[in-house]
Design a protein around this nucleic acid. Sequence first.
DNA 1: TTGTATGCGTTATCAT
DNA 2: ATGATAACGCATACAA
Lengths: 332, 332
Amino acid sequence: MAGVKDVAAHAGVSLGTVSNVLNQPHRVSPATRRKVEEAMVELGFVRNEAARHLRSGRSRTLAYVMLDAANPFFTDVAAGIEETAESGRFSLYMCNSDNRVDREVAYLDHLVEQRVQGILVTPIDPEAAHLAAVAHRGTPVVVVDRTPREQALCSVAVDDVLGGRLAVEHLLDRGHERIAFVGGPESIGQVRDRLVGARGGLDDAGAPPVTVIATEATTVREGRTAGERILGLPRAKRPTAAFCANDLLALGLLQQLVGSGLAVPDDLAIVGYDDIYFAGAAAVPLTSVRQPRHELGRRAAQLVLDEADNPEHSHQQVVLLPELVARTSTLG
Amino acid sequence: MAGVKDVAAHAGVSLGTVSNVLNQPHRVSPATRRKVEEAMVELGFVRNEAARHLRSGRSRTLAYVMLDAANPFFTDVAAGIEETAESGRFSLYMCNSDNRVDREVAYLDHLVEQRVQGILVTPIDPEAAHLAAVAHRGTPVVVVDRTPREQALCSVAVDDVLGGRLAVEHLLDRGHERIAFVGGPESIGQVRDRLVGARGGLDDAGAPPVTVIATEATTVREGRTAGERILGLPRAKRPTAAFCANDLLALGLLQQLVGSGLAVPDDLAIVGYDDIYFAGAAAVPLTSVRQPRHELGRRAAQLVLDEADNPEHSHQQVVLLPELVARTSTLG
DNA sequence: TTGTATGCGTTATCAT
DNA sequence: ATGATAACGCATACAA
């Protein structure tokens, strides 16, 4: 494969001139420039990024290691990252850890060795030592959609406690009193926080506590199962509204109810969480708590870039606010 | 940032020994090895991939440039690619062109310069000259989910004509006669092919031709609009079934119908295309034509790897077969 | 088993 | 305006 040397030979100039055509075009006479450019085309010359990178130290690449590429939430966050990246003339590589620690570690290692300019990551465990290790090995990292407790890392997340509160307050406003919380396991910080917020909201309003319908994961399938369990409750004890820990659960629940002939929201109102695209596209459009996904991505990218080239950079934990989007599933 | 040289100095050995610890550990005495390894940890040494790559010519990275990261179809294809990549100890970078030609070109350039081992791409236009240019500049490319007409490129796609035929044959089996096709614009090859297949199926069965409800894009929103238009038709002319060019359209159509109080499939049966996850998760689970998404990704990755290290490699256009998944939206 | 020297392709500095 | 040369960090062949 042709390099600058070959191009130089082919064009009958020196290696340095070819380099100048590439990097300082104005310092080369139009005539020789043309000669060189022709030679490049003829030989199919391609700059070797590895070599130029070797000289200049850093690349113009950011990477986002995401938890689950199939979850639209994360692809939306990625779109936000890309907005910022693109305006700074950076490329973004997305890597999918798919909820597997070994892959998360493998990707982080690979990226650190590749000397990308910065890494954004939604980790499986925000406390994991290997996250801090990345920063320690010299690559800026920002944790996205999670808040590490004690680590000296930048992070951007959304206030899940507030989100839970918004959900139940909306349901209380609509006149509901018997409210279920569908979600689990509580080992997931976000599920826990949303439940805490929900309880707080009910508490403050002097309303009865939530019925927790515990799930084993936050998936559509588990949402269906939760629906079966709700349908199995005696009518008098059955909740009139359900707040689901995310939209996948809510969609599963909705499917189960509609399939059983119940009406949403008349028989059961539903609030989801995340406001993924398919929440608004559901047969009964879902009310949902929206996280500012693009903003999440944009802020995270800004932080990682700042960390990369601002010597004054100090780590910060940004917390953004969610908002409730009311749709048919609670409004009728 | 520490390099092999620093590690060598710190450990009191030579540079070559450090390199051996990294690449030929067995050729180093356990004692010195330990010393060196300790030094590496102390200094936070990280291999410089750019430098080692510069020597060895190629990297262990594949990349997938996808049309739309927010469409679950493509993330599923990516998962298939990753399966193959992982078993070959490759990393996969995903890039999102987001339907923009400038970004597609920018990413391809970046990847070629980076000398990735191979590029998979679902292009905006499979005939675009810049695709062939990538191959010409020395990086193996495989086109995914599209079939370039005349280009000497590998590709893996699914038979869309057959898919269209399967859809209408299923509807005919269920006793439908007045069938609508929802989709557009026909400038999209896949939309065209699916319509061709549908027409062929009806023709062969001697059934009346499809009513085409043309859309401006294959989105949920356009699906809703199509629903309005179907509802606007006089009852007698209204189709009893609709075949949608993809699931997003189908979901939009379903939403519009349910919102208007019509029953699916009793008032209108629906068949979608792609069988994305949310098709099965819809309130009325959607019948859909499934493309072997993982297989699509796996085969494409195999082809690109073959092209990369098999000198005997010859380009091939693989065509996989779709299958119909029947669910409630046509079965009641 | 360990150390030394050379080159990978590029860019930047200097001299011409 | 152009050409020569050193250096980036590492891996390898070879010498010790």
